[in-house]
């Protein structure tokens, strides 16, 4: 279950790839929406760790335009519910993620991203 919260934390770590290596680009994805428990405390606590632009851009690529381009200062319920949905309820079940820099492809299968590198690709 690659969700956008996980995706927002994954960067390409192939050898010598350390600039423009985030966010990874989703390709050929199969999405599933699954409800999760709404927890405002979790969201508020996690917000400082989010790369906001990457999250908004990725959500838009996947068809969700509910998040504002700038992280708002006032965290009202409507915003938090949208954030909850984007971070935790959109599941990428199949597909892949491509590094914008080195073009390394990380496959996703059965909801689990494969971030393993071959011996010669390790930095």
């Amino acid at each position: 279950m690659v969700r956008l919260i996980t995706h927002n934390l994954l960067a390409c770590h192939a050898k010598d790839c350390n600039t423009n290596n985030f966010p990874l680009e989703f390709k050929d994805v199969q999405l599933e929406i699954r409800e999760a428990d709404f927890n405002p405390d979790f969201l508020k606590g996690f917000m400082p760790k989010i790369e906001w632009k990457a999250l908004v851009d990725t959500a838009r690529q996947l068809g969700d335009t509910s998040l504002p381009l700038e992280q708002p200062e006032m965290l009202d319920d409507e915003f938090l519910k949208n954030l909850h949905h984007v971070l935790l309820e959109i599941h990428v079940e199949e597909g892949s993620m491509t590094c914008p820099n080195c073009k390394h492809v990380y496959p996703i299968s059965n909801g689990i991203p494969n971030m393993l590198l071959a011996e010669h690709e390790i930095g």
Binding site: T6, L9, L10, H13, P113, N114, M115, L116, I122
Partner: peptide, 17 residues
Amino acid sequence: DIHVVNGSLDEPFQQRL
């Protein structure tokens, strides 16, 4: 609610976290 990545040690998260 666990978020799982098939990866080696901390590598996938090293940069962002």
